[in-house]
């Protein structure tokens, strides 16, 4: 089955502690594309059951108004993850984020558990998606296999904290330590035609550094970024949303290519730039992104 929401807009995926009512009651007002209700690192070891309780009722009761609800389960090396999945599926989440994925088998185990839960709770099968977080050197090296491990998988995400530990370095704020992983993941994701998301930026006092970081990953081709505070949302959306100028240019390119094609012309100029058929997909993507971001007012 083709799940159409696999390709939805995910510029921002905001982490929220599933145990905190004040955080999870209305994060949609900040308009993130997705929220990640966290049962893993944000929740203390002796609070896992309480967090699941809160998560289940939030998923059941709160209208998140179109905001995608992803649940980050605990690692597959813990005794919690199966129950996390059951709870998330029973609550009706949209997707499961698997931490510390290192091989396709990790994805398969989760996939099986989701299917079991879907059956147990009488949910339609195959609707709940998966995203895999890559947090180790091994995971980075296996990225393409992970991307292709399941039909449910819509994307992979770099998790920089654990990854840099594994690399025996640290987060510097420059991005140097993440360069290889970022490049590898985006190439793997594009090869498998799934989405790719960058790691969090945790220094909330350095919004300029955050902006530079987002600009970098945008240019690298990422689809979006994991975020930890709603203040980061407008910056990411601003960078990831096509500007009015970009949209007008993309419209001209699409129209001109379609027109010129009928006239048998392959190469021509738009606003002084040389354009040929190779520009068509990119221009279309800009328009689609503008539409998904709610800023497109044209008729293409």
């Amino acid at each position: 089955m083709i799940n159409l929401v696999k390709k939805r807009l995910r510029r921002t995926m905001m982490f929220l502690n599933a145990q905190k009512p004040g955080l999870i009651k209305d994060p949609y007002i900040y308009r993130p594309d997705s929220i990640i209700l966290d049962l893993e690192d944000a929740v203390a070891e002796n609070q896992k059951d309480a967090a699941r309780f809160s998560l289940y009722h939030a998923l059941k009761e709160i209208d998140y108004r179109g905001c995608e609800r992803v649940v980050r389960i605990n690692g597959l090396d813990t005794p919690y993850w199966q129950e996390d999945i059951r709870c998330a599926v029973a609550g009706g989440c949209d997707a499961i984020r698997i931490p510390k994925v290192e091989c396709p088998k990790d994805v398969h185990r989760v996939e099986e558990e989701i299917l079991k839960a879907e059956k147990d709770f009488g949910m339609p099968e195959g609707m709940i998606l998966i995203m895999a977080a890559i947090e180790s050197a091994r995971g980075v090296m296996k990225a393409l296999d992970i991307c292709e491990a399941s039909d449910r998988l819509f994307g992979i995400a770099l998790s920089g904290g654990d990854y840099t530990k594994d690399l025996q370095t640290r987060i510097t704020g420059t991005g140097i330590e993440l360069m290889g992983a970022r490049q590898n993941l985006i190439i793997a994701a594009r090869a498998a035609k799934v989405q790719c998301f960058d790691t969090v930026y945790t220094n909330l006092d350095d919004m300029e550094g955050f902006q530079r970081d987002v600009e970098t990953i945008h240019l690298m081709g990422f689809d979006g970024k994991s975020i930890v505070n709603p203040r980061q949302i407008p910056i990411v959306h601003d960078i990831f949303t096509p500007s009015g100028k970009d949209i007008i240019f993309a419209e001209k390119v699409v129209r001109e290519i379609e027109e010129k094609k009928e006239m048998g012309i392959g190469v021509f100029t738009v606003d002084g730039k040389m354009i040929d058929i190779a520009f068509y997909d990119g221009a279309r993507r800009t328009i689609e992104l503008a539409k998904a971001s709610g800023v497109y007012k044209g008729d293409l």
């Binding site: 007002i29 900040y30 909330l204 505070n229 709603p230 203040r231």
Partner: peptide, 8 residues
Amino acid sequence: TTDMRKLM
């Protein structure tokens, strides 16, 4: 304030 709700 750094509270996004208030900033919004």
